[in-house]
Computed example of a mutant assay.
Amino acid sequence: MPHADTLTVVHHDDTRTRFKDVRYQLHRDGIRIWSADGEHAITDVLMTHAYRQREVES
């Protein structure tokens, strides 16, 4: 299950919902997100932006 430091969900009406430090699963019917606030299921997904900051390995 992917992990994102920041995840932005763009809805069909162009509004955005932002989450921090989450795990998520993309489905045909939308996205399911697990965060410190609990579990979220969003079905009106137009696009997602997930970012993960990783430490540089030497």
Rank of each mutant, 00 (worst) to 15 (best):
V9P: 05
M47H: 14
T6A: 08
S58P: 07
S58Q: 14
R23F: 07
D44L: 02
V10T: 12
R18P: 11
D21R: 09
H49W: 09
D13C: 00
R18Q: 12
Y51I: 14
G38F: 06
A36S: 15
V10S: 12
T8P: 10
D14I: 05
H12M: 09
G30K: 02
I31H: 01
T48N: 00
R32K: 14
T43W: 04
A4D: 02
H3T: 03
I31M: 00
R54K: 14
H3P: 00
D13I: 05
R23A: 11
T6M: 07
I31D: 01
Y24W: 08
A41F: 07
D5V: 10
T15E: 11
L7S: 00
V56M: 02
Q25E: 14
A41S: 14
D29V: 10
D37R: 11
H3A: 10
D37S: 15
H11K: 15
G30Q: 02
T48S: 01
R32P: 09
D29S: 12
A50E: 05
H40C: 04
Y51M: 14
S58I: 05
Y51A: 15
E39A: 12
R32D: 13
L7Y: 02
F19C: 07
H40L: 08
S35G: 10
Y24I: 01
D13P: 04
V9F: 00
M47R: 15
T43G: 01
Y51N: 15
T48P: 04
